[in-house]
């Protein structure tokens, strides 16, 4: 356990060094958020029927997406990618630790630190100036916090699977290039999911990505009642379990493949 904790701490310090990048990222994200909010405002002004999400809810939803972007964004471990390119991934395999758990703790650290660095100032900015609202009740806040933990683990678990996919070189490159954008879309970071046509909703429900953004966001805005947190968490952790199992078995196969190839 101590090994994973020290990996976690090391990553934390590394990420803390990129404060200039974090500041630049903040400006970028604020600009994008504003653009999205303005587009939404224009559409809401033209609404003929009452949309399934109120404008303040949609705005808060959008800003949450900007704040938590780095938590939701799926990306393989950059170090493992480098090792695959340099052909030194075998050393990683030789570590005397549970490699899956090791990668998972790195994925968690790589999500928490940039999120903390970016989310807090972004949320303050958006709440003070750009119309982001507080949760309607303490219950909603608590429910959101619980769901956020699930989103974090879900994001990390899928990301580790992406990392593992890199062991299949070309296919891995393709998967890691395609999945993140699709996942962002299906988590509601392009457009809040409730605004999509009704017939799309069951499709979103069947997929794991809703648990990354949409469900926690709606708990925050109060669009989902706090009681819904139980079903949200259940859904998230079932998927986490699935991805951990998938990741572990894929990692086993990938390592066997590497051993056979002598990579």
């Amino acid at each position: 356990m101590k090994a994973y904790w020290s990996v976690f701490r090391a990553r934390f310090t590394v990420q803390l060094q990129y404060r200039a990048a974090a500041a630049a990222g903040l400006v970028t994200q604020a600009f994008w958020g504003l653009l999205r909010v303005m587009v939404l405002e224009a559409f809401y002004r033209s609404a003929e029927a009452v949309p399934p999400l109120s404008l303040p809810e949609a705005i808060t939803y959008t800003w949450l997406g900007q704040c938590l972007f780095r938590l939701i964004f799926l990306s393989p471990d950059p170090e493992v990618r480098e090792m695959m390119r340099a052909g030194t991934v075998a050393y990683e395999m030789a570590r005397p630790v549970d490699l899956y758990a090791f990668w998972l703790s790195r994925a968690l650290a790589d999500r928490i630190v940039p999120t903390v660095l970016r989310a807090v100032p972004m949320a303050v900015l958006a709440t003070v100036f750009f119309g982001m609202q507080f949760p309607p009740s303490l219950g909603a806040l608590g429910a959101w916090a619980l769901a956020l933990v699930g989103a974090l683990f879900l994001s990390a678990a899928i990301s580790v699977l992406l990392t593992v996919s890199l062991l299949w070189t070309i296919a891995g490159e393709g998967i890691t290039r395609l999945v993140p954008a699709v996942a962002l879309f299906l988590s509601g970071l392009y457009i809040p999911l409730p605004l999509f046509p009704e017939w799309c909703q069951p499709v979103f429900d069947l997929l794991p990505f809703r648990g990354l953004g949409d469900l926690p966001f709606r708990l925050y805005t109060g669009h989902l009642p706090p009681e819904a947190v139980f079903s949200v968490i259940l859904r998230q952790w079932v998927w986490i379990g699935v991805f951990v199992l998938l990741g572990r078995s894929a990692l086993r196969q990938g390592m066997r493949r590497l051993v056979v190839q002598g990579g």
Binding site: A42, S46, A47, F185, I191, L195, F196
Partner: peptide, 14 residues
């Protein structure tokens, strides 16, 4: 697709 979704919901914008 995101643009399309907004129009599917709102039909037109201003």
């Amino acid at each position: 697709l995101a643009i399309w979704a907004l129009f599917a919901r709102f039909r037109q914008v201003l």
